[in-house]
Simulated scan of single mutants.
Amino acid sequence: MSKSAFIPSVPAQSESDFDVSASSRLAGYRRFFGVLNVVRKTDGRLLFPFDGAPELGPFPTKVEALAAAQVYGEHIVAADLANPEL
C-alpha cells in the first residue's frame, strides 16, 4: 500500500522560501552551460528545470555560465513571488 499524500501548493512569501542552486558544466572546448535548480521550499515544488526549459548557454567561460544561471534563478524567484505557479 502506498503512502503518498497530497501536498497542497503553498505560495512563497519571500526569497528565503526558495532553494536556488547555480553551477556550470563544460560541454566541449570552451562551451560552458549554466546549470540551475530552483525549488520552492514551502511545498517542495521544482520550478526549474522544467520540461522544455531553455539551456543556459553556451558561454565562452565558466564565470559567464555561472553568472547567467544565477541571474536566471533570480528571475524565476521574482516571477514566482509576483505570480505564484500553483
Results as ranks from 00 to 15, higher is better:
80 D>S: 02
85 E>A: 12
79 A>P: 09
35 V>W: 09
77 V>S: 06
6 F>R: 10
42 T>S: 13
76 I>V: 11
55 E>C: 10
13 Q>A: 15
67 A>W: 00
34 G>T: 02
44 G>D: 04
21 S>H: 15
9 S>D: 14
31 R>A: 12
86 L>N: 14
69 A>V: 05
20 V>G: 12
85 E>N: 11
41 K>C: 08
64 E>Q: 10
27 A>R: 12
2 S>C: 14
24 S>I: 00
70 Q>W: 00
4 S>W: 14
10 V>R: 08
16 S>V: 08
79 A>I: 01
60 P>Y: 03
21 S>G: 14
70 Q>Y: 04
29 Y>A: 14
32 F>N: 03
31 R>Y: 12
51 D>L: 11
42 T>F: 06
24 S>V: 02
30 R>Y: 13
68 A>T: 03
42 T>C: 11
1 M>D: 11
3 K>E: 12
82 A>L: 03
72 Y>W: 06
73 G>F: 07
10 V>G: 14
48 F>G: 08
13 Q>I: 10
16 S>C: 14
57 G>H: 05
37 N>Q: 11
22 A>R: 01
48 F>A: 07
44 G>L: 03
74 E>S: 12
78 A>S: 02
56 L>Y: 04
43 D>Q: 09
67 A>R: 03
71 V>R: 09
16 S>R: 08
8 P>S: 04
66 L>S: 09
76 I>K: 01
65 A>S: 06
51 D>M: 06
42 T>K: 06
41 K>G: 11
26 L>N: 13
74 E>P: 12
34 G>N: 09
35 V>G: 13
30 R>K: 14
76 I>S: 01
61 T>L: 09
49 P>S: 05
30 R>W: 05
80 D>C: 08
11 P>L: 00
63 V>P: 07
15 E>Q: 11
19 D>G: 15
39 V>D: 09
75 H>N: 15
5 A>H: 14
74 E>A: 15
28 G>K: 00
86 L>K: 14
2 S>M: 15
45 R>D: 00
50 F>D: 08
6 F>C: 15
45 R>F: 14
5 A>E: 11
71 V>N: 00
69 A>S: 05
40 R>E: 08
84 P>Q: 02
52 G>E: 07
72 Y>H: 05
8 P>T: 07
67 A>M: 06
41 K>T: 07
42 T>N: 00
29 Y>L: 11
21 S>K: 10
54 P>C: 00
59 F>C: 02
32 F>K: 01
48 F>C: 05
45 R>G: 12
22 A>S: 08
66 L>Q: 06
20 V>C: 13
26 L>I: 10
80 D>I: 05
81 L>K: 02
47 L>F: 05
16 S>F: 12
42 T>R: 03
19 D>S: 15
11 P>W: 07
44 G>W: 00
54 P>N: 04
50 F>G: 10
48 F>W: 01
3 K>F: 15
30 R>I: 06
16 S>N: 15
63 V>E: 13
5 A>Y: 13
75 H>R: 10
43 D>Y: 03
74 E>L: 08
5 A>M: 10
10 V>H: 08
86 L>D: 11
64 E>W: 02
28 G>E: 03
12 A>T: 04
81 L>S: 01
7 I>V: 13
12 A>F: 03
22 A>M: 01
72 Y>L: 07
65 A>P: 04
41 K>H: 03
73 G>M: 07
33 F>Y: 04
80 D>V: 00
